[in-house]
Nucleic acid binder design. Structure first.
Lengths: 227, 227
DNA sequence: CCAAAAGTGTTTGCTCTACACCCATGG
DNA sequence: CCATGGGTGTAGAGCAAACACTTTTGG
């Protein structure tokens, strides 16, 4: 490894794929691009990494600057570095994915950096700038995958929730229906949520509210089937 | 997103955690550092990304330059970007992990870039430069994890191998013994290897040689247990 | 013929799945 | 009292785990 100064450097950015449930739809947060290239198209929130900040902090900061969101669940996804992915020159982007509770308010009037942020249902996404389509597709695969063996689904719900709401969350993301009794039995057996004393009244019988136990182990040990 | 030129840029490197089995030990390939910082310590092979090359190509190239290895299985792992991880300044590194068949010869007399490459058993690793200890630990977790639900283990063996060799590979990496009959039944049922007509003679009864079927689906669909 | 490693089935227990009815509340 | 969603148990099938002896070769 030689000294760093001798080499030209790619620009380094972070992008964030933020998921949330809005009106029973799985949505991604997009911002409208104000400038070329891809002016007027939608893109993932993101921007340059500062010299003194962590990658995850950069992703957090960009998400907040462009959408007002704070404290969302955030995780590094993959780093995209194809030489031609940005027409302005070499830009390498560390993509993250974020999960936002559905009751979280998003500032859809833009902040300093972008014109406007908006939730877009996954099944009617517009064309996206750069390679962002590919990044979203990968983030979705990872979300589905993660949902099957970790407790990450709770990050999309408010602090307390009913079992039916939780089941609907899983159903929407996985795109298939689940059996109510099996769902409840297994999620309770896993010991990652606990009942509160409260109930929520609506139409019909009131439902008990549950809360995520943050002392729970997030990774559910998956049975090995290969060998 | 503004124009790229306005911002100072971190340096961008790739590092490679290359695993191989050597004398029944799971090993990592390390190079001895010639210069400060961390002169004389061991480090992961790696180096700067060129402006016109893919991240994965950069990892491949660095691995070849420093060790002579070509065509190994290679996959992006995680991007490390803590501001203080390199004392020379801000360096962000895209870590990869690689799997090298045990019969592959490594040029342990150094090439252009590094002084010497050597396999080091995982259970007696020396102190490593930078945050490379952490990177190796994460790569190992990922390798074990991947082994349980994908066919990636074959990448550590020569083109043909016996079932006993394959089982030993799994046992070494997972760090536990497996039942011979169950192992064979399952790996054959999975349909990812096929018998050849050859046998290998040694002490005792000759063993049939198998080969990886590259038309096989690499991901074994894991049964969901959550929910 | 002996040592060394290869190869081969069955039984038992557990976990997943499918499935239908009663309960509590609000209007 | 009726409509609405909440909550609960069981039987059958399929999969995983445990386990010991026979076969083939080389010396």
């Amino acid at each position: 490894m030689k000294y760093t100064y001798e080499y030209p450097r790619p620009a380094l950015t972070v992008d964030v794929v933020a998921f949330s449930l809005q009106n029973q739809n799985l949505c991604v947060l997009l911002v409208a691009r104000g400038e070329a290239p891809f002016a007027g198209m939608w893109a993932l929130p993101g921007g340059f990494v500062n010299m003194d900040e962590d990658l995850e902090s950069a992703a957090e900061r960009e998400l907040e600057e462009e959408t007002g969101l704070r404290g969302a669940y955030l995780e590094q996804l993959y780093t995209y570095g194809a030489p031609e992915r940005d027409p302005r020159g070499r830009v390498v982007s560390v993509a993250h994915f974020a999960l936002v509770p559905s009751n979280e308010p998003v500032r859809t009037a833009g902040g300093s950096d972008a014109s406007a942020a908006q939730w877009h249902p996954l099944n009617e996404l517009p064309q996206l700038a750069f390679d962002h389509q590919e990044i979203v597709a990968y983030a979705l695969r990872r979300l589905r995958y993660k949902l099957e063996y970790t407790a990450v689904g709770f990050e999309l719900l408010p602090e307390t929730f009913t079992l039916t709401e939780l089941q609907q969350t899983y159903e929407i993301i996985l795109g298939e229906e689940l059996d109510k009794r099996n769902f409840r039995r297994r999620i309770l057996q896993a010991g990652i949520i606990e009942a509160t004393q409260q109930k929520r009244s609506g139409e019909g019988r009131p439902a008990r509210l549950y809360r995520y136990r943050d002392d729970a182990v997030a990774e559910v040990k998956t049975r090995r089937l290969f060998p």
